[in-house]
Design a protein around this nucleic acid. Structure first.
Lengths: 331, 331
DNA sequence: AAATATTGTGGAATCGATTCCACAAACATA
DNA sequence: TATGTTTGTGGAATCGATTCCACAATATTT
């Protein structure tokens, strides 16, 4: 393997001088510099990052923990982060937990052992053990999506977004609202959005029907099933005239079922989701949804992390992002 | 920082012994082992991967170069790779070129400097410079999506897939086929698929109309524009009764334009794509497309790479994956 | 011409692990 | 008891860079 020592020999200078050329530090005569650069060019020498990191304690690598690779949301967030990190010469080391909470902790340790300069966690379910692990991580850290006490977080305004969407449905004259959520262990998506829905219903003095509130699992199929349940429970009695799915995919699954049932959207029933997935534009009719601007979340998180890295201060910074309503024909 | 030396002191053994406990190598008395493990548990010590890699020349990191983060295809491929790598304790270091060919080379070097154990390139456009860079990379390497001479590749059967799809349209009784491709510098998507289309047309003795062959750019908008051009050129004369877009998004863009024009799909005109994007199932009508099983491509590439890493042989292995037709209502 | 300031270079320690080797202790065998 | 074998441990070199420090060679000032 090509090392700094060999290069030094070939250029007839010392290792120190080569290092100086590489890092633009200290005094190097123009002549020596030229010779070194020539040899580097010639040999294609690339300094070992490991040796460098060992010495400098900096790796220029950011660890990112995703709940699931290749979901649209993850992709967008990572994209946003990448914009910022790339600009500053940082690489992303990706890990995916596939929704396994145990792995989240495992990866935190792993990333630490790789001496990443910082960690970004795209969080779903937060338990106290994980919190503890994070707090004693002692590394620049930012969470996205969930509010975790004691660390910097970039979160969405889930409560307000859900409330606003529900109020929009009500403003459209809908009075019998159904709801499809997810498990409340996901505080942001499961709990906050549900509360937003409930509070909007209450605020407007409408009837909150527990039997019209179902749980899905983030995918289209579960939205379909949940909708089926709701319709089943409604039986021949009063019937929902709107359904709010906490994710686009859930809403789209619901739409599928409704269409099969021969119901017209939005004439018979309105449908709304959250997430502004690309697919939401192309279903029929186009789905009304909330854009969370995930790229921005990624960018913000990256910026906050870089700030932490550069200032060495571990400030607990909280950023709550805005949502943007995309009103389309489904309501 | 916690080092092996400190642990050794605390456990009252030598550094060597700690290392042996960590790596299950050499003789360690039960007593010494217990003490060491206790201290490690207590302190939460995690060995530095850099020091380790410096010594062992193994990083357990695979560099992945993507053309674009967060496209559905990339996501699926990375997902597939991750399945395999995770199982073997490898991490993925992600880089994205955002379609900048210059960056592809830059990242190859960068990954080398990080001493990744191998590199997977999801290729789009291959020029000779890049080929050269790859050949002198001297690292386990696999390309996905494009066939590059001299290195292992996992490719799709683009020619046959496009030909088969075209023949399906012909079998449905369509005779006036339009085509929306992409730039041919992307050999697989741009050139091979186009050839498949052309050869199918010729084989069946149909008329190949150059003016009905347009170029798009992978996104929905460009499919829309390309379709507009084709219709414009057709003017009042003979009119296409089918259009084949080389990606689902292009096809969907075309569908959008056709619908706006008041044309009925598939009554007036058939539409087909390639890629089996999720969205293809939910447009109206559902799009006929080819499933390339990208996860499998990622898995295969990962397996081939691991083989190269483990055997140290640099065999040039070529895998061509099959396609699967998904016939839906758009034709 | 002597004293001082500025530049360029190499020696050597260092980062945190692994691993070869030598040695010592414990045990078994003749 | 003397000898050989098995185990357990630590010393020290090593991986490939960075960086402090000392020194030498110039250049500049008195």
């Amino acid at each position: 393997m090509l090392t700094i020592k060999k290069i030094a020999e070939m250029a007839q200078v010392s290792r120190t001088t080569v290092s100086r050329v590489l890092n633009d530090s200290g005094y190097v005569s123009e002549e020596a510099r030229k010779r070194v650069l020539a040899v580097i060019e010639e040999t294609g020498y690339v300094p070992s990052q490991h040796a460098k990191s060992l010495r400098t304690k900096k790796t220029k690598v950011i660890g990112v923990i995703l709940p699931k690779l290749s979901t649209e949301t993850s992709g967008r967030i990572v994209n946003g982060m990448n914009d910022v990190f790339q600009e500053h010469g940082y690489q992303i080391l990706l890990t995916s937990t596939n929704l396994d909470v145990q792995k989240e902790m495992e990866y935190l340790r792993l990333l630490k052992s790789r001496q990443v300069d910082g960690v970004i966690l795209i969080a779903t379910n937060i338990n106290s053990k994980l919190k503890e692990e994070i707090n004693q991580l002692n590394l620049p850290f930012v969470a996205i999506g969930q509010d975790i006490s004691g660390v910097s977080c970039v979160t969405y305004n889930d409560y307000e977004a859900a409330k606003a969407m529900t109020e929009l449905l009500i403003a459209k004259g809908r009075k019998n609202l159904a709801f499809i959520g997810v498990d409340e262990s996901d505080r942001a998506v499961g709990y906050d959005r549900k509360q937003g829905f409930i509070d909007a219903i209450k605020k407007h003095g409408l009837l909150l029907r527990e039997e019209w509130m179902e749980k899905g699992k983030f995918d289209i199929e579960s939205g379909y099933e949940a909708m089926k349940q709701i319709i089943h429970k409604a039986g021949g009695g009063p019937f929902p005239d709107a359904v709010f799915g906490v994710t686009d995919r859930i809403a789209i699954g619901a739409m599928q079922f409704l269409r099969e049932k021969g119901l017209q959207i939005p004439k018979d029933i309105s449908v709304a989701g959250i997430g502004a997935s690309e697919i939401s534009r192309f279903v029929h009719p186009p789905l009304t949804t909330m854009d969370y601007e995930n790229e921005k979340a990624g960018q913000q998180a990256a910026q906050i992390l870089l700030e932490q890295i550069n200032t060495n201060k571990e400030r607990e910074k909280k950023v709550k992002l805005n949502y943007r309503l995309l009103e389309r024909d489904s309501i």
